[in-house]
């Protein structure tokens, strides 16, 4: 069964706590720009649109990886990059049409949301419930 983060844009306050905890966890320091999820500001601040990796069923990143560094976790369906195999070639970054993968220039590897192993910190820290964990079901998602 695939687990994804569902976003309620109407509840997002733009506080960026999700991005701060993500970057803190993944890089050891805080900067929303280095988070593996994004908040797109609406004009005039009327809305904020959180954007997260959908752990695609038909994941382009997984398809294009030349060294099979991108794989799917069998338990929660998350699409994960194996750091030990990733060469940092950037093909997955280009392939993701939602721009949810970024290259870490320091260790020359691609980085993407791995759902923190199943219990994402962004969801835990979101103060309003704008981010939720949803388990998808049904035959078509098998």
């Amino acid at each position: 069964m695939r687990t994804v983060i569902y976003t309620n844009f109407d509840l997002c306050t733009g506080c960026a706590i999700c991005q701060m905890i993500c970057s803190e966890h993944k890089t050891g320091g805080t900067n929303p720009r280095l988070a593996l999820l994004r908040i797109s500001p609406g004009r005039n601040g009327l809305i904020h649109q959180p954007e997260v990796c959908q752990q695609c069923q038909n994941a382009f990143c997984l398809k294009v990886c030349p060294v099979e560094a991108v794989y799917r976790n069998k338990d929660n369906g998350a699409v994960i990059i194996d750091d030990s195999k990733c060469t940092g070639c950037g093909l997955c970054v280009k392939a993701c049409q939602k721009s949810m993968i970024m290259l870490d220039k320091e260790n020359k590897a691609a980085r993407k949301c791995d759902l923190c192993g199943g219990d994402p910190l962004c969801v835990q820290f979101c103060p309003t419930g704008a981010l939720q964990i949803v388990k998808l079901g049904g035959e078509k998602d098998e």
């Binding site: 509840l11 306050t13 733009g14 506080c15 960026a16 706590i17 701060m20 009327l46 103060p127 309003t128």
Partner: peptide, 19 residues
């Protein structure tokens, strides 16, 4: 008012935005 808005890192969201 339509929704709440917050500053960076703040769970309080004291802003209320709308038109």
């Amino acid at each position: 008012w339509l929704r709440s808005e917050a500053c960076a890192g703040c769970p309080i969201r004291c802003s209320k935005v709308g038109y």
